[in-house]
Structures are given as structure tokens and as C-alpha cells.
Amino acid sequence: MTETKTETIGVILAGGLARRMGGGDKPMRAIGGRPILDHVIERFKPQCDGLILNANGDPARFAAFGLPVVADSVADFPGPLAGILAALDWTAQMRPGVQWVASVAGDCPFLPRDLVARLHDARAAEGAMLAVAASAGQSHPVIGLWNVALREELRHALVVEDIRKIDRWTARYPLATVSWPVEPVDPFFNANTVEDLAEAEKLVALAG
């Protein structure tokens, strides 16, 4: 049985430098005639009670998308954990009644439309503190559900312990893992290379 919808802020992690594509912002690359980020927002926004974008540098480059752009809240800690912490900090300050943040990668154009609901259901059913998505037997650590109450523990892990890998940190807590089918399209397909972009073009029509 699906539980009552839990208030959740969504964060799109768009901090990567796309080195395998020659630099720039991966989410701004186009598939199906639209930026990848446009596809991500379309699928993710209806599932959340507010959406923010985690990105460093000049936020003006994302102005057309109409989302608050939140930079990392700790300096010089590149990587998705810093972006997740920034989202937890933003939520604690701007939406203090909200206890949960869902994160997705900015280069995943085919996200499932039931992502947040299924992560919450699994977390509640298993009594977990965190939840993460998986497909084809592989966990996707950046696509998950995070408890705002853990933000100071995450800050300590980043700043004091120099932990960068998400799964090294999540291993400390009860974690629910939710798997999605990969047919007709892996919903967590991400566009890392020029070849991936070409593949994504073929998948757009299948993704629905």
C-alpha cells in the first residue's frame, strides 16, 4: 500500500564538468531537440514539493529553467555529496518543515515518474533512514532520498573525514534500495559521452 505523500524537496545535481564531452554543462546538451535538463525537470518536478538545482559557477547560465540555483555549501569539496549537503542546508533554511530531499543526476533524461513515491515507500516499509535507486543489478548512489536531520553528520563526513564516495557514507545508515526495470529503457541511463548522446537520441521515443 502506498503511504500518504511525504513532503520532499527535489535537487538536480548539475555540478559535473563533462570532461568526457569536452567540458561544459552536461545537462545543457540537447537530446530530442531539448536540453537534457529540460527532460529531467519535466519528469522530476511533479514528484516534488519544490525543485532546486545544485550547480557551481555563474547561476545565470541556468536562468531559463526558472529554478533556484544552489551552490555547494562547503568549499572545495567537488562531487555529489557536497551537492546533496547543499540541498539539505537549503531545505533546512528555506523549507524548515520538510524532512526529506530527493536527489537526481542532471544528465539522466529518462527518470522514472514514480521515483520519489517508490523511494519513500521502501524507506518506510524497511524502517530505513535513506533510500537509493538501482537498475540492472547496479546501485545509483546519486539518485536517492536523504533525511535533512543527517546534514550535520554529512558535513562532518565531508569536511573532517574527507569522505567523497556516496556509498561509503550511506553504508553507515539503514538503506533501502529500490530497483527499476530496464525495458524498454533504463530510467537511469546517463549521458556521459558523445556516444551516449547519440544513444539517447534513439531512446527518446521509447522512453515515453
Rank of each mutant, 00 (worst) to 15 (best):
N54Y: 11
R168M: 04
W90P: 08
F44E: 01
Q99S: 15
L175T: 14
T91K: 12
I41D: 01
R61M: 09
A87F: 06
V148Q: 08
R118H: 13
H120Y: 10
A157I: 03
L111V: 02
A71C: 01
D76K: 15
D89R: 15
L175I: 06
E126H: 14
V159P: 03
G144M: 06
A105K: 00
S135M: 00
A136P: 00
D38W: 02
R43E: 03
A55N: 13
D114E: 15
A102S: 15
S139R: 14
C108H: 04
M94C: 12
H120A: 04
R155V: 00
I41N: 05
R172N: 14
A149S: 15
P80L: 00
L85Y: 15
L130G: 06
L85Q: 05
G79T: 00
E152D: 14
L85D: 02
D76P: 04
R34E: 14
P68W: 12
R168N: 10
C108E: 14
R113M: 11
D114W: 05
C108V: 09
A82M: 04
G79W: 00
D58Y: 06
P174H: 11
V104Q: 00
D121W: 08
T91A: 13
A55Y: 02
G127F: 10
V142C: 03
S139A: 09
L85E: 03
V159Y: 10
A136W: 00
G106S: 10
A63P: 00
D162A: 15
L145T: 05
P46N: 07
D38Y: 07
E152R: 12
